[in-house]
Amino acid sequence: MVDEVLKRYKAGWENFFVIALTGSVSVGKSTISQQLSDELKKSFPGVTTAIISVDSFIFSNEELKSRGIFSEKGFPKSYDLKALSAALFELKNGSNEIKIPVYSQAINNIAAGEFETIKKPKILIVEGVCAFRIDNYDLSIYVDADEKLIYQWFLKRTLSFIRNSKDDPNNFYYQFSKMPIPKIMPAINQTWEQTDLRNLTEFIEPMKKKADMVIHKTKGHRIDRIIVN
């Protein structure tokens, strides 16, 4: 994976290089992005990297509710993609740094008044369910896995969020932490079926055909093959 990325980067290495990385919820996009960032810096001394999550540009819960699309949170319409593309345009056209909103998993919302500074790197990785919908990326990577495995990873992650929230009343998942698992499973499965699975089948998976590279994962989040297009 890293060799292929570097081959494409070196073809015009003096230019700002943007990698768009997408895939389903819970498929491991953030982990792969961080691994790729670390390996790039090890393999090419002097290269700098940064990661932006598309979630930083999701509309706040309050805005989603006012638009009547809170139930479609995570779908393309729930993101301010114009603002994300504008931020990337700033970096590509001379800005040395930008400030972007912060999405908090703990509150399941944009953290009001909080911003993260992104210093312009040589290689920027933009990861998230809508990453292929930004403008002017140089390399596209799709993280793929069997739907049944993705559901298992989604369930494991959700239960982990709930378990880790039991001592934090301000955490979004705290409301579920005092409930027995059988009682919360219907809500978890409803979220999967009506939001995350639908988002995958209708909006995310169709983008796979645009990918320059497909990383396929199997049990244990192990990468079992990489397809370069």
Results as ranks from 00 to 15, higher is better:
residue 89 F to S: 14
residue 149 L to V: 08
residue 160 S to W: 12
residue 93 N to Q: 07
residue 169 P to I: 03
residue 169 P to G: 03
residue 152 Q to E: 15
residue 63 E to K: 15
residue 78 S to E: 05
residue 97 E to W: 12
residue 79 Y to M: 00
residue 143 V to R: 00
residue 66 S to C: 11
residue 113 G to I: 07
residue 184 I to E: 03
residue 53 S to E: 04
residue 108 N to E: 11
residue 160 S to E: 15
residue 167 D to T: 14
residue 169 P to Y: 04
residue 62 E to R: 15
residue 137 Y to P: 13
residue 127 E to N: 10
residue 66 S to G: 11
residue 174 Y to P: 05
residue 120 K to M: 05
residue 129 V to A: 02
residue 125 I to V: 10
residue 96 N to H: 13
residue 115 F to T: 13
residue 57 F to Q: 01
residue 98 I to P: 00
residue 155 L to H: 08
residue 154 F to Q: 02
residue 150 I to M: 04
residue 164 N to C: 09
residue 97 E to M: 13
residue 141 I to M: 02
residue 177 S to N: 02
residue 158 T to K: 09
residue 156 K to E: 15
residue 127 E to R: 10
residue 81 L to K: 08
residue 159 L to H: 12
residue 71 S to E: 10
residue 165 S to N: 11
residue 148 K to D: 12
residue 66 S to T: 14
residue 73 K to E: 01
residue 72 E to W: 14
residue 58 I to M: 08
residue 149 L to C: 11
residue 52 I to F: 01
residue 144 D to V: 09
residue 66 S to Q: 14
residue 176 F to Q: 03
residue 163 R to K: 15
residue 158 T to E: 06
residue 148 K to H: 13
residue 96 N to V: 11
residue 174 Y to M: 03
residue 85 S to T: 07
residue 181 I to A: 08
residue 112 A to M: 11
residue 155 L to T: 09
residue 181 I to F: 08
residue 104 S to W: 02
residue 101 P to D: 00
residue 54 V to Y: 01
residue 158 T to H: 06
residue 107 I to C: 06
residue 125 I to R: 00
residue 160 S to R: 15
residue 62 E to Q: 14
residue 103 Y to A: 07
residue 122 K to A: 09
residue 83 A to N: 10
residue 86 A to Y: 10
residue 90 E to Y: 15
residue 122 K to I: 01
residue 59 F to P: 10
residue 164 N to L: 11
residue 63 E to Q: 15
residue 130 C to Q: 06
residue 96 N to E: 12
residue 69 I to R: 05
residue 172 F to Y: 14
residue 162 I to M: 05
residue 172 F to P: 06
residue 55 D to G: 05
residue 185 M to D: 07
residue 59 F to V: 09
residue 173 Y to K: 00
residue 168 D to M: 01
residue 94 G to C: 04
residue 181 I to K: 12
residue 169 P to E: 02
residue 184 I to L: 03
residue 163 R to L: 15
residue 124 L to D: 08
residue 113 G to W: 07
residue 144 D to A: 13
residue 117 T to H: 09
residue 142 Y to C: 01
residue 127 E to Q: 10
residue 158 T to Q: 05
residue 77 K to V: 11
residue 75 F to T: 01
residue 60 S to H: 04
residue 159 L to I: 13
residue 96 N to K: 15
residue 52 I to Y: 00
residue 65 K to I: 10
residue 133 R to I: 09
residue 88 L to H: 07
residue 176 F to S: 10
residue 180 P to S: 06
residue 91 L to T: 04
residue 138 D to P: 07
residue 77 K to I: 11
residue 153 W to D: 12
residue 115 F to E: 14
residue 71 S to A: 13
residue 167 D to S: 15
residue 156 K to I: 11
residue 156 K to F: 11
residue 72 E to S: 15
residue 150 I to R: 06
residue 74 G to H: 01
residue 155 L to K: 11
residue 174 Y to H: 09
residue 111 A to V: 07
residue 50 A to Q: 09
residue 156 K to Q: 14
residue 163 R to I: 13
